[in-house]
Design a binder for these strands. Structure first.
Length: 927
RNA sequence: GCCUAGGUGGUGGAACUGGUAGACACGCAGGACUUAAAAUCCUGUUCCUGUUAAAGGAGUGCGGGUUCGAUUCCCGCCCUAGGUACCA
């Protein structure tokens, strides 16, 4: 019988499902291992060949770990709340839940075809009320918590209230809003319930506040910072504007430092760690106050170079700074106002693009230098951002290039402050010299100056050391329908949680999925949707990242109705050992998940500071488009004549995308092309060497480019095992690469060779119980070792090559020994589980048991040969092969090599300086 | 601009700590089997010189360096991809 992938794969996929082969339990003596994929959003387009790459890698790893004796948790689910289903609902009126269900079923079917070893009994869906009940529950915990900086962790809000009651706001060191009140315990007790709640809200980790948000009018919702790319929305690319709104936010900034420190403890790709570091954006520096006597206030600035303070020649405020109008003198009023007007009209994009032009305006006012007391001009300019630091900077033209250009342009003084500075052409920020023109720090080094200045500023009460973060709190509400309802109702304009036993707060039915006529979110359309029939519910829903910020816990205990996961399950599985997914989630999902994980740890629900110990980014698989070249007539209109790639320069042509599924090795199937589009039915071709060769280009995989390859088609032609092997064979897992079906034959051929090892020429199963030869053992043990090493370092591509070499060797040896072949298929099982299951049971073993068989033990003795050919050279020049017995020690080898007549001739009487041994072989003699 | 990763045959890629560069696969060329095709197998395939050959030379983006020996380490430059940006 020939290798028939179709029947084998169907048979075993059914067997695994019927027997729940991959169901995982916690009651075992085996060590645990948790392998997680980033769960997909089930989109309507289904999977293309690029999606499963990471899933295949994680499945290989999971299966390998099972063979190695681990109890592996390898689950899958769906991030099923999201925009596309809602937009489809707006267009068609179909409930997003139905769209989502349909898409999930399609995804499941496609995933099943690939033969993954998921424990489907643990599947989660973020849009399932049984799941989002716990998302809402975690929101409640965040609402009921504050961040105590004294102990550097979140605590229940009750501990804060207790402090208020005993000592008022005295001595509380919290991460909170800026506008908190100062009060005594007595005053606190005299506050009304409403006043108290209003104050507590400023401390909660999930809080409601008037904030400047990214408003996307086209999507009708606010967006988080990570959902805005270059001033437009990540989804759809619509313009985004800044707007003040009452919004739910998450106080992720409380965790900024822990999120940063944690990065040193995880095994993640360096670029990803770097992205998170930049996003958190920690700057160590000082905050300095410049007094403004006429207004009886100070301008506070943040600087990372307090040592340059004597070089300050002016101060710059952001045009939006709150003191601008008060500081503007009568004379400067029109200039300032026209400048503000001009900058406010610039969109975010223009402002980013236009970083070359220097612009600004003088307010007419002066501040006092905190140390010298001299007058310092106050300017406004749009290179200072309202949203970072204090929205004001001290300008040091000699040390900062932007300040330098500004000073040159407006003819402001440039004061050199270091004896090592060269400021002829541009600013010089070096810290190497000694200070000059710098009062009491003259002659000091950088380190000395910073310490002296901080001490001085603290003494003057005009400044202190400060750490600033770029990261902002995360906006948590979305004005959309298809998301988790926020379990909050409003009384006297203040938010209150519903009771825990009232969870889940179900998503209400609405007649349309659009905002209401009065501009409220879609939930405003729900009829009679009121808490206790009288209080308004929150009408925003949670953002897409809510459900994905804790889902790995739910897999540990997915059916639990009492808690998000039981203590026992969480203590057993701990954290995710290996997480595989795309790097596009670097500053979104992966940051929010770490945040919620740390928060849940603070409240004592588990003990892991970091949720994902090791993380691998699979590279994106791009599309590889094919083109035909349509000949144009004199008027430049397209004719029905198409010229082959190599001859296209001889004609006036226009390239057209052609479906990659009718092109093989870049040769067009001209018959299929004629039925590709009706107007191509009578197409003519100009061929080269009798073939029509297509052009190629690497682009994103998309329907409009006709370069989408569906895994189902590959599986129908070659089988899931071939697809799995080929996706790995394509190149290193972490590298982006274009999909190209061209080489898949080689992998398919390999599997047929594996099959033939077990069968005779007539196709009959034929395996012998004879003792294998040394050569056969050697081939086997090479692959045992190689695959072990490769999988541990995620180099799956080279394993596939090694398998091919191994099978070629065994074929040459005509090996059909059970002892060899059985171990071979165990090693191959993670990569190609279907064919190995089939061969396993043909060998007479228990069906399904190969998934948990023991990985063969590597024995290095089998790799030792009796004779090695020693490549030897003298000073790298001449090369020769000396056959030698292996079991000689280094000394003996040395003697034999030096005694060799050829070596002697090359040495030509010169003294030997040293012998270079590599892995026990002499490879070079240095004279 | 800055940060990170990378640059190897016609193509995808290999070479794990400096040790025979181009494994393995695709493609291509030639051959065997076959009436023929499919399938399968064999041989060749970095480039240049050389009548096939023997043999020699060059060669891992470019230019230098360290070393007996460099795709690998160091310095300078060029290019590609991803991230990021008036962040004070």
């Amino acid at each position: 019988m020939d290798y028939s992938h179709k029947s084998i794969e169907q048979k075993w996929q059914k067997f695994w499902a019927d027997n729940q082969t991959f169901k995982t339990s916690e009651s075992t003596e085996k060590p645990k291992y948790y392998v997680l994929d980033m769960f997909p959003y089930p989109s309507g387009a289904g999977l293309h060949v690029g999606h499963p790459l990471g899933y295949i890698a994680s499945d290989i790893f999971s299966r390998y770990k099972r063979l190695k004796g681990y109890n592996v948790l390898h689950p899958m689910g769906y991030d099923s709340f999201g925009l596309p289903a809602e937009q489809y609902a707006i267009q068609t009126g179909q409930h997003p839940a139905i769209t989502t269900e349909t898409n999930i079923n399609r995804y499941r079917e496609q995933l099943d075809n690939i033969g993954f070893s998921y424990d489907w009994s643990r599947e989660v869906r973020t849009s399932d009320p049984a799941y989002y009940r716990w998302t809402q529950w975690i929101f409640m915990q965040l609402f009921n918590a504050w961040y105590n900086k004294d102990v550097d962790k979140a605590e229940s809000i009750e501990t804060l209230i207790a402090k208020f009651e005993t000592s008022g706001s005295q001595g509380i060191n919290a991460e909170c809003d800026d506008d908190i009140l100062t009060f005594s315990a007595e005053e606190w007790k005299s506050f009304s319930e409403e006043q108290q709640q209003r104050e507590i809200l400023k401390y909660r980790l999930a809080y409601l506040r008037e904030s400047t948000v990214n408003w996307c009018a086209a999507l009708g919702t606010v967006l988080a910072n990570d959902e805005v790319i270059n001033g437009v929305s990540e989804r759809g690319g619509y313009p985004v504007e800044q707007k003040k709104m009452m919004q739910w936010s998450m106080r992720i900034t409380a965790y900024a430092d822990r999120l940063l420190r944690g990065l040193d403890t995880v095994d993640w790709p360096e670029p990803l760690i770097e992205m998170q570091r930049n996003w958190i954006g920690k700057s160590v520096g000082a905050s300095v106050k410049f007094p403004v006597p006429q207004l009886d206030t100070d301008i506070e600035v943040f600087t990372t170079r307090v040592d340059t303070i004597f070089g300050v020649s002016f101060i710059v405020l952001a045009p939006e700074h709150e003191l601008v109008s008060a500081l503007t003198t009568e004379d400067q009023k029109s200039e300032i106002e026209s400048y503000i007007d001009k900058t406010s009209k610039k969109s975010e994009l223009d402002r980013m693009a236009d970083t070359k032009t220097v612009s600004g305006a003088f307010t007419g006012s002066y501040a006092k230098h905190p140390i010298t007391g001299k007058d310092v001009q106050i300017w406004i300019a749009d290179y200072v951002l309202a949203g970072y630091g204090t929205g004001a900077v001290m300008a040091v033209p000699s040390g900062d290039q932007r300040d330098y250009l500004f000073a040159k342009h407006f003819n402001l003084p440039i004061i050199p402050i270091s004896d090592s500075q060269n400021i002829e052409e541009e600013a010089d920020a070096n810290k190497d010299g000694r200070y000059i023109n710098s009062g009491f720090i003259n002659g000091m080094t950088y380190q000395e100056a910073v310490a002296a200045l901080i001490a001085k500023l603290e003494e003057l009460k005009l400044g202190k050391a400060k750490i600033n973060f770029r990261m902002r709190d995360a906006i948590f509400g979305r004005q959309r329908y298809w998301g988790e309802p926020v379990p909050v109702y409003f009384k006297n304009g203040l938010p209150y949680l519903i009771k825990e036993e009232e969870l889940p707060l179900l998503l209400p039915e609405v007649d349309k999925y659009l905002p209401t006529e009065t501009g409220e979110p879609p939930l405003g359309r729900a009829e009679n949707w009121k808490y206790q029939d009288q209080y308004e519910y929150e009408l925003s829903t949670m953002p897409g990242w809510a459900g994905s910020s804790w889902y790995w816990f739910r897999y540990m205990d997915p059916q639990n109705a009492e808690s998000f996961a039981s203590k026992e399950a969480v203590d057993y599985w701990k954290a995710v050992d290996l997480y595989i997914g795309g790097s596009e989630h670097a500053t979104g999902h992966l940051l929010y998940s770490r945040f919620w994980n740390k928060f849940l740890k603070d409240l004592g629900f588990h003990n892991e500071e970091e949720p994902f110990k090791k993380l691998i980014n699979q590279g994106m698989i791009q599309g590889r488009s094919n083109f035909v070249y349509r000949v144009l007539d004199e008027e430049g209109r397209g004719t029905n004549k198409f010229v082959s790639f190599g001859l296209r320069d001889q004609y006036n042509t226009i390239p057209l995308h052609v479906d990659v599924n009718i092109v093989y090795n870049d040769v067009l199937d001209t018959e299929k092309f004629k039925s590709f589009r009706p107007d191509f039915a009578d197409a003519e071709f100009v061929l080269e060497d009798g073939k029509y060769i297509c052009g190629t280009e690497v682009e994103k995989m998309s329907k409009s480019k006709f370069n989408v390859v569906n895994p189902d088609d590959i599986i129908a032609n070659f089988g899931a095992d071939t697809l799995r092997l080929y996706e790995m064979f394509l190149g290193p897992l972490e590298q982006a690469k274009p999909w190209n079906t061209n080489g898949i034959e080689g992998v398919y051929k390999f599997l047929r060779k594996v099959w033939r090892l077990f069968h005779d020429a007539g196709g009959n199963f034929n395996v012998s119980d004879e003792e294998p030869t040394k050569a056969e053992y050697k081939a086997l043990h090479k692959i045992i070792k190689k695959v072990e090493d490769d999988i541990e370092r995620f180099a799956f591509n080279t394993s596939v090559s090694a398998f091919m070499i191994c099978v070629n060797e065994l074929t040459d040896l005509k090996c059909n020994k059970r002892k060899i072949l059985q171990d071979l298929i165990i090693v191959l099982e993670p990569y190609a589980p279907h064919i190995t299951e089939e061969l396993w049971s043909l060998l007479g073993n228990e069906a399904g048991a190969i998934s948990y068989a023991a990985y063969p033990k590597f024995n290095p003795d089998y790799l030792i040969e009796s004779v090695f050919a020693y490549p030897v050279s003298v000073n790298g020049k001449m090369k020769m092969n000396l056959p030698l017995a292996l079991d000689l020690d280094a000394k003996a080898v040395e003697e034999i090599v030096l005694a060799n007549a050829d070596v002697q001739r090359y040495l030509d009487g010169k003294a030997v300086k040293k012998l270079i041994f590599v892995k026990g072989k002499i490879i070079n003699i240095v004279v």
